[in-house]
C-alpha cells in the first residue's frame, strides 16, 4: 500500500511537471484521437485543410518500420514535409495510396496529387470528418482492451492474431534476414519502492527493427551510459518519442515497471 501511494505521488509530480512545461494543461485525447497527427506544412497554401493522420488505422495494417524506415516518414509531425508531388511520384503516402496497391484485395485510394481535388478531402480533413469516432469504435470493438491511449492492447491483439501488421512492401522494403532475438534486460528505477523496468528488445524490434531506435533515439547502449529520467521521457525524449504519442502512454506505469522492487 505504501509503495502504491509513493508510486502515485511520483506519477502525479511528473505529470504536473510535464504539463507545467507548456503552461497550459492539454486535453487528454479520446481513444480515437490518440496517435493522430496533424500535418499541414503546405495545406494552407494549397487552400486545403491540414491532414489528420490516424495512426490506429495504419498501425493495425503495417509495422512502424515499413512507414518510418522503408518509406521514410519522420518521427515527428510535419518533419517529412510531404508534398502532393511526392505522393504523385509514388513516395510517402503515394507508396500505397496510388489507386493500384491493394490491401486485403481492396484497392487503396489514391493520394491527393493536386490533379483530382475531390479526393483531397479524404485526408485533408481537419475538423471535417465526423465519422472518425464511429469508424474507430467499430474497429476497436473486438480488440483486447487497455486502460489508456487508444484503449487497445496492440501487443496482445497481435499475439492473438487479431491484427497482423505487414512488415514488407514489395519494391520498397529490403529483404532482410530475421533478427536474432536479444534477451530482455532490467533497468533499475530511481525511486525507492518503484519496481524496476524490464525492457524487451524482442517486443520492440518486431515492429521497429534496429535503425528506427538506434542511434537517433537511443544513443548509448552500455548499461548506465545514458541516464533516463521520467521528466525527459514526458518531454518526448527516449521512450517518449513513441510512448505518449502513438504507443501506450507512460502514465500506464505497470506496462514498463514490471520487475522486482530494488531494496
Amino acid at each position: 500500500m505504501k509503495h502504491l501511494i509513493l508510486a502515485m505521488a511520483v506519477l502525479f509530480a511528473f505529470v504536473s511537471l510535464a504539463f507545467a512545461e507548456g503552461g497550459v494543461k492539454k486535453r487528454k485525447p479520446l481513444p480515437y484521437e490518440f496517435g493522430s497527427v496533424v500535418i499541414g506544412n503546405f495545406s494552407g497554401s494549397a487552400g486545403l485543410s491540414p491532414v489528420v493522420f490516424d495512426h490506429w488505422i495504419h498501425r493495425s495494417k503495417y509495422t512502424c518500420r515499413v512507414c518510418h524506415v522503408d518509406i521514410g516518414f519522420g518521427m515527428s509531425a510535419g518533419s517529412t514535409k510531404i508534398r502532393a508531388a511526392d505522393n504523385g511520384k509514388g513516395f510517402y503516402c503515394g507508396t500505397c495510396h496510388n489507386g493500384k496497391s491493394k490491401y486485403e484485395n481492396k484497392i487503396i485510394f489514391e493520394a491527393c496529387s493536386g490533379k483530382d481535388s475531390h479526393k483531397c478531402g479524404i485526408c485533408h480533413s481537419m475538423g471535417r470528418n465526423p465519422l472518425r469516432e464511429q469508424a474507430f469504435a467499430k474497429f476497436a470493438e473486438n480488440l483486447p482492451k487497455e486502460r489508456l491511449g487508444n484503449g487497445i492492447n496492440w501487443q496482445l491483439a497481435e499475439e492473438k492474431g487479431l491484427i497482423s501488421p505487414i512488415n514488407y512492401l514489395e519494391g520498397i522494403s529490403i529483404k532482410r534476414n530475421a533478427m536474432s532475438v536479444q534477451k530482455d534486460f532490467s533497468l533499475e528505477a530511481k525511486n525507492e519502492g518503484m519496481p524496476s523496468i524490464i525492457f524487451s528488445h524482442s517486443k520492440h524490434t518486431v515492429w521497429n527493427g534496429c535503425e528506427l531506435c538506434h542511434p537517433d533515439i537511443f544513443l548509448g547502449v552500455k548499461k548506465g551510459a545514458t541516464k533516463y529520467s521520467m521528466i525527459d521521457l514526458f518531454q518526448g525524449k527516449y521512450c517518449g518519442v513513441c510512448h505518449n504519442k502513438v504507443a501506450f502512454p507512460q502514465t500506464d506505469c505497470q506496462r514498463c515497471h514490471v520487475g522486482s522492487v530494488e531494496k
Partner: peptide, 9 residues
Amino acid sequence: SLLSSTTLA
C-alpha cells in the same frame, strides 16, 4: 513520370 500512379516499385 507523367503517369501519376506509376510507383517506384
